[in-house]
Design a protein around this nucleic acid. Structure first.
Ligand SMILES: [Mn+2]
Ligand SMILES: [Mn+2]
Ligand SMILES: [Zn+2]
Ligand SMILES: [Zn+2]
Lengths: 144, 144
DNA sequence: TTCCGAGTTAATAATCGTTCCAAGTTAGAA
DNA sequence: TTCTAACTTGGAACGATTATTAACTCGGAA
C-alpha cells in the first residue's frame, strides 16, 4: 500500500527533495506504528543503511514535522516520540509497558466537536484536540 | 486557605516528613498554577531559601508524584511540567506562548464516561483520561 | 563539460534536563 | 535527649537533543 513510489510522492507533495536518507526514514516511519523515538528509528534504519547519522534522523524528523509529515506525541516523559499518523486520532497509553497505541473513533470526534460548539471557551479558538487514555489491557494481551 | 498548617497536614497525610525543603516546595506549588518546570520552581524558591539544591527539587517532586501530590503534564516537548492539581481536569495548550491552562468541565467528563461505557475498548481498562486542547486566545489576552 | 550554489548530510561538540551518588544533616520516634 | 532512618546537598554523570560546521551532492547556468 505505502510503497516506495508512494513515499516519493509524499516527499514531492511536501516540496522536499527525495534523498536516500529521507526515503529510508519515511519508510521506517510508515512501517512503524509504535510511536518510536528518534533513537529507535535510528537503530531500525542502521541495519539497512549503516552510514546514517543520528543527527540526520533528528534533523529529518524535524523537517518532516515542519511539513506535517509527523507529529510529536505528548508523553509525560523525557523522550520525544514521533507519530507518522497525522490524521485526527487519539492515544492509549499502556500503563505497564510504555507502549502507545492509536485510537480512532469518529463518533467520539463528533461528540467532542458538538460539545465544544455548544460550550465555547471564551475568546479561545480551538485548533486541535486529543484525548489521552491511560489504562491497561486485562486478561488478554493485545496482539502486536 | 492553603496556609502553612494546611501544607503540613498535607505532608502528614501523605506520610512524609515535614522538612523545610518540602514545605517550601509544596508552598510554591500551591501558589503556582502555571504548570511549572522543576527549574522554574527551583528559581522561585531560591529567593526565599537560597541554599536549596536543584536535586532536592527534582527528588521532592518525584516523591510528591509518588504520593499523588503532583502530576506530570504531558507536553510534546522535552521538559517535564508539574501540576499541583490532581483532581480530574483537562488542559488548554496555548499555541503561541507555551502556557498551559486548566480546563474543568463536569459535563464533559460525564459525556466522556458515558461514551466509553457504551463504546468499550476491547479488554482495555481505562484508569484515567485527559483532553488536550490546543489553540489560542483571540482578540483579548486572558488575564493572568 | 565545467562550474556554481543551494540544499543536504555526517561528525562532533555543546547544551539541556534529569538522575545518581557519597557524604553530611535532620525530623521525629522512642 | 538520644538515635537512626530518612533526607538533603553539590557535583558528577547521564541520556536526549540541538548547534556547528565542513564535506558532499546534484541540477542548472555558462
Ligand atoms: Mn498521534
Ligand atoms: Mn493537569
Ligand atoms: Zn498515533
Ligand atoms: Zn492543570
Amino acid at each position: 500500500m505505502n510503497n516506495k513510489a508512494q513515499i516519493r510522492k509524499t516527499l514531492a507533495n511536501a516540496g522536499l527533495k527525495a534523498t536516500v536518507q529521507r526515503l529510508v526514514i519515511l519508510e521506517a516511519l510508515t512501517d512503524n506504528f509504535s510511536h518510536p523515538t528518534a533513537e529507535s528509528i535510528y537503530r531500525q534504519i542502521k541495519k539497512k543503511y549503516p552510514s546514517i547519522s543520528l543527527s540526520t534522523v533528528y534533523n529529518t524528523l524535524e523537517v518532516f514535522r515542519q511539513h506535517g509529515l509527523v507529529r510529536f506525541v505528548n508523553t509525560g516523559s523525557v523522550t520525544v516520540r514521533y507519530d507518522p499518523v497525522t490524521d485526527k486520532h487519539h492515544h492509549l497509553f499502556l500503563e505497564d509497558s510504555n507502549k502507545i497505541e492509536d485510537y480512532y473513533n469518529n463518533e467520539l470526534d463528533r461528540l467532542l466537536n458538538k460539545f465544544f460548539s455548544k460550550n465555547k471557551i471564551p475568546n479561545f479558538e480551538i485548533n486541535d484536540m486529543q484525548v489521552q487514555i491511560k489504562g491497561r489491557y486485562s486478561k488478554y494481551q493485545k496482539a502486536n
